[in-house]
Design a binder for these strands. Structure first.
Lengths: 214, 214
DNA sequence: GTCTATAATCTGATAGAC
DNA sequence: GTCTATCAGATTATAGAC
């Protein structure tokens, strides 16, 4: 989990250790002592960098929010990027990969913290609703509209289709995280992710035989 | 949350209080003392009914497993029930409602405990994978096959469609739970649930011109 | 900024009277 | 089966030396 302990400030090392522990043991299942031990300092030293345990979580959430906001706003210049594709499936997958690349480090374990705490902490609940549902629906709507307006997919209810896609993606993401913990290989799960997204977008093609118009 | 405290055994009241607290505050966020206080006894009395805190969780998980197993096995006689429907959407919704009716009390808050702890506790992770993904996929496959074999939906990849449906349902369920906590009315959320499922099944019709109705 | 020392409280769990 | 009393350890956090 260490990405270079020695070159980081104590504050950043505390931050990193907290992200690691909160995501794997839960917020309430992690003590200040454990964080301090992982960093290699005494627990009292942590209070020189953060106001307390909740203050660390607060900093993590702010970091996540800022990272997501930046990645989302850079998404607005994505239209230029999209023009390089004539295949809807390839475009869709490429846009997804591009967005993920814009996200800062620790986004993955932090999103796991959010899921862990979404029913327990109001801030986490709000973040999950916004970053995993509301914002994703909007992004999916925009991409679908782009594809439809260029005749790359058939006419369909953009709103409802985006909703279905986002729910599907979230269910898929959670199962993939659980399967990874069960020992399934990242390659296998990545393939399953791609296949499932591919199947969804293929179903929107204009002349697909399987879901086409009779 | 009380469904009749006075007529229940102490053990059952402890069980009920633990389900309530574990689901709303998390397992690690709940103490034996809080459970005892909610029941109205001293914490030491709890050890006359359960071996300890983890023993209570263990009992909750066993109760959930048994309830799910019973409901699932009763699902095998569902085919007779299905024959009363000629509309795929109505059949689908009715089967879902019928299955939920077979589930015992506390299933809803217990499933919330499972989601809370799925990344932290191996037993919860396994239960989520089985009851919310694996078993649901199988059930969806069976229903889809029934519909296809009777010509009520068009030919499609049963396996992939079931997978998409289950992921969609889980994403939808989580968002609905979060929205409920945000103050959205159960009626509104129930309507959204129905609409979203309806849209999915409508998209499988033989002669759908679009991907759904409005 | 780090440490030692310590406060004040909470934790799960046990022993034994009734 | 419930209670009181108690334990040993963990918890977050602070005070003050260096």
């Amino acid at each position: 989990m260490n990405t270079g302990d020695d070159h980081m400030s104590t504050r950043d090392r505390i931050f990193e250790a907290a992200v690691d522990l909160f995501s794997t043991r839960g917020y309430h299942g992690t003590s200040i002592r454990e964080i301090a031990r992982e960093v290699g300092i005494k627990e009292s030293s942590i209070y020189n960098h953060f106001p307390g345990k909740d203050g660390i979580l607060e900093a993590i959430l702010e970091y996540y929010q800022e990272g997501f906001r930046t990645a989302t706003s850079s998404l607005e210049e994505m239209e230029e990027f999209m023009k390089g594709f004539s295949e809807p499936v390839e475009l869709w997958l490429a846009v997804g990969v591009e967005f993920i690349k814009k996200l800062p480090p620790y986004t993955e374990p932090i999103s796991r913290i959010l899921i862990n705490e979404m029913f327990l902490d109001e801030r986490c609940r709000r973040f999950v609703l916004h970053t995993m549902f509301t914002a994703q629906k909007e992004a999916a709507e925009n991409s679908l509209r782009y594809l439809r307006d260029r005749g790359l997919i058939r006419d369909c209810d953009i709103r409802q289709t985006a909703v279905q896609y986002v729910y599907m993606l979230q269910g898929l993401d959670i199962e993939n995280r659980l399967m990874r913990m069960e020992g399934h290989s990242p390659e296998e799960l990545q393939q399953h992710l791609m296949d499932t997204i591919r199947f969804f977008i293929e179903g929107l093609r204009k002349n697909n035989t399987e879901r086409g118009i009779k």
